[in-house]
């Protein structure tokens, strides 16, 4: 199943089973979805539940919150993470705080889906990974879907949940063919051990998962048995799974596509320091996006984010430097 089809299947089933579920965003209806995630939904559920909005992100999310207040279960689609900055006020000042500042009286069952990350030469205003902006906000749940199984099961969970969920996708994953399975009693907050290993823990999420899997093949040739963990949920973070792995491997690498300074890995390292300091044989290695806006030229673009080659060489250098 294609990754985007898994997302579509989750939305479709939720809309089928619960008529309070609606989806709104730019081109989600008649156009069929910018990345075809919502393809076919309008013909099944009509334009009242598959809502084409103006290009006004603040309103897309603000309207969705109002729908949630009125008892609907809205899914707001933002075309790309960069555009979600226009909706920040509604996401952070409203969605994340309404339950709390009303003393628990307000309930906002809301999903805000958005793809981000470096795609193919879309330049600085369409290529960002701003997950830390959301992962630093109390009152938000931040999930990242790297694969079809998680995308389907976690999105279904998110649509049924009674709190706001930021659901992050990646533009390069949409057309990818992937394994898929339906999971009963799915818990979206658990990290996934993608591959077990004993020498080294590699933490990653979203599209970097695949770069890490590529890199691991080379590491294996160099005699390194790496454990790969996909974080899945960025807020809350599954520190238990991380800590258990580090206890075993004594070494940890974080591979992330966002900018290094203040990036997601910074928070992960902080939690590792608090929880696993005495288990570590070496400082945690962060392999992250460079601290520059994303350039257009393909060669330059690739130079700003981790790639399988870079992941391998940085890990080998780090091991040599630390004598581990």
């Amino acid at each position: 199943m294609l990754y985007r089809e898994a997302l579509n299947k989750a939305i479709d089933e939720c809309m089928e089973n619960d008529e309070s579920v609606v989806i709104l965003g730019e081109d989600v209806g008649r156009y069929g979805g910018s990345y075809r995630v919502t393809e076919g939904l309008i013909s099944k559920y009509g334009e009242k539940r598959v809502i084409d909005t103006p290009i006004a992100e603040l309103s897309i999310v603000g309207n969705a919150i109002g729908m949630a207040i009125a008892g609907l279960r809205p899914i707001a689609e933002i075309m790309t993470v960069n555009f979600s900055l226009l909706a920040m006020d509604q996401i952070i000042n409203h969605a994340s705080k309404l339950r709390y500042m009303s003393g628990g009286k307000m309930t906002i069952p809301l999903v805000v889906r958005m793809p981000g990350g470096v795609s193919r030469q879309l330049a600085a205003q369409h290529s960002e990974s701003y997950e830390t902006l959301y992962a630093s906000i109390p009152g938000l749940i931040v999930l990242t879907a790297s694969n079809a199984t998680y995308a389907y099961n976690a999105l279904k969970w998110a649509i049924k949940s009674n709190d706001p969920v930021i659901f992050l996708e990646h533009e390069l994953l949409y057309p990818m063919e992937m394994d898929f399975k339906e999971v009963k009693d799915f818990n979206p907050f658990r990290a996934e051990i993608v591959k077990e290993g004993k020498d080294l823990t590699i933490l990653t999420y979203l599209k970097m998962r695949y770069d890490v899997i590529e890199a691991e093949k080379e590491l294996k040739k160099a005699g390194i048995d790496a454990e790969i963990i996909d974080l899945n949920s960025l807020r809350p973070l599954d520190i238990d799974t991380i800590a258990k792995s580090i206890k075993k491997t004594k070494k940890c690498v974080i591979v992330e596509e966002d900018h290094k300074t203040g990036g997601m890995g910074a928070e992960v390292v902080s939690q590792i320091m608090e929880n696993c300091f005495y288990d570590l044989d070496a400082p945690v290695l962060r392999i992250a996006g460079e601290d520059v806006p994303i350039p257009y030229n393909r060669k330059l673009e690739l130079s700003t984010i981790p790639t399988p080659d870079k992941i391998v060489s940085k890990i080998l250098d780090w091991k040599a430097k630390n004598g581990i």
Partner: peptide, 12 residues
Amino acid sequence: GHLPMAVGCAYA
């Protein structure tokens, strides 16, 4: 900030 929410509520 409450106006977009009011719009969404009216939609619902």
